[in-house]
């Protein structure tokens, strides 16, 4: 079956964009979770100054549009002599934004762990750090996982904003073709299907992770 030149160009562009999207999403998702755990712990356990810092971070990155954050990173920071490539700017923006949301899920999960878990660990002679690292975080992650997964799915979709800083991923590549041929409806429907496929894959992976972390009866008390 031969595709028309339009479709040939569209699919080769979209496949290129898909690779870029995946290259944006995977490190951003992992980085976001790691920053989220770190910031969540600092916000839940830190002293006043650290908590203030963590809360400020979350407030800024949850409180401003991602578009604005990306603009500042890519177009604003060069004024201070800091230059990011489009890809680096996008990934940095996504990690910081996603991390702020993840930290909220993690913080909530940490605060929901009962005092008895700390008492049990402290009574055995575990240090406070060991208690948090070996007892509290593993439980909090299991409580937070559904929220964190949800945030990763959001991330997949807001990764489309990378084209704003000229990092051409799925949406950016598609938009170029659509403009060239002036066929917006079909191009964007197809882009939508690509995202749907990405999200489906991610949901599938998240299910596997949830299964691996599953503990009989955990959280049903």
């Amino acid at each position: 079956m031969d595709f028309s030149p339009f479709y040939q160009e569209l699919f080769s562009s979209l496949n290129r964009g898909l690779l870029m999207s995946v290259a944006l999403i995977v490190p951003s998702a992992i980085g976001g979770v790691l920053i989220g755990i770190t910031a969540g712990c600092l916000r839940a356990y830190g002293n006043r100054a650290v908590r203030l810092l963590g809360n400020g971070y979350a407030a800024v990155f949850r409180g401003t549009p991602l578009v604005v954050q990306l603009f500042v990173l890519y177009f604003g920071l060069p004024n201070l002599g800091i230059y990011f490539s489009p890809y680096a700017a996008a990934v940095t923006g996504f990690i910081l934004c996603s991390g702020a949301y993840q930290s909220e899920y993690i913080r909530g999960a940490l605060l929901s762990i009962k005092r008895g878990q700390y008492a049990g660990a402290h009574a055995l002679g575990l240090t406070h750090f060991q208690t948090i690292f070996w007892i509290i975080i593993p439980q909090a992650v299991r409580r937070a996982i559904h929220g964190c997964g949800n945030e990763i799915i959001y991330l997949i979709k807001y990764s489309s904003l990378a084209y704003i800083v000229t990092c051409l991923e799925l949406t950016g590549e598609g938009k170029t073709v659509a403009t060239e041929y002036f066929r917006f409806t079909e191009v964007f429907i197809i882009i939508g299907l690509y995202y749907l496929a990405l999200v489906t894959c991610a949901s599938f992976l998240l299910k596997i992770i949830e299964k691996r972390l599953y503990i009989p009866g955990f959280g049903h008390k």
Binding site: G116, Q117, A119, G120, A121, A123, L124, L126, Q139, I215
Partner: peptide, 30 residues
């Protein structure tokens, strides 16, 4: 605390660990 064991009214077992790992965790980490 390492030398003084404590048993709680509410048990305070670690919910994410098996019975065995509830015991091994302190042996390994402490």
């Amino acid at each position: 605390r390492q030398q003084v064991g404590m048993i709680f009214q509410e048990f305070n077992l670690f919910d994410h660990l098996t019975a065995l790992d509830n015991i091994t965790i302190a042996l390994r980490k402490v």
